[in-house]
Design a protein around this nucleic acid. Sequence first.
DNA 1: GCCAACGTTGGC
DNA 2: GCCAACGTTGGC
Length: 153
Amino acid sequence: MRSYWLVKSEPDDFSLDDLERQGKEPWTGVRNYQARNFMRDGMKKGDLVLFYHSNITPPGVVGMAEVLSDPYADPTAFNPKSDYFDPKSNPENPTWILVDIGFREKFPRMVSLDEIRTHPVLSGMRVAQKGSRLSVQPVSTEHFETLVALAKA
DNA sequence: GCCAACGTTGGC
DNA sequence: GCCAACGTTGGC
């Protein structure tokens, strides 16, 4: 049973094109417990992931990625030189967990946040809620299929 | 650049 | 355990 997800990324920091170039990327730097729990407890290899660009005009879903690894400790939490360093995390009992995300496809067109919010089905997505800051979030099968169909229409 | 919404921290 | 202060996210 495959699950569906949405991850946010600021394209100035790491875009879908960057993911395409790299092929895959350890999803480092998530420092929110709810988002971590989704990666740690929910994500499985082969799950499909909507790739969302935030902090850009317009924000929206630009493509599809997939989960390529089992969950493992985020190594940036142990690196004092990293922006994501967290002295409270240690390799014996890591606080922060990630998965590898792989490139799958760039959609023929972006589905913007505005379009998600005004769509009768997609408006129920968590990302559409005002003030929604969760950077890793589950997506229902219906929302996933509706959004992909729209992106390819 | 502004600021509302939200999550976390820390004093009490 | 409460909650004010603070820092961050992210749309606009």
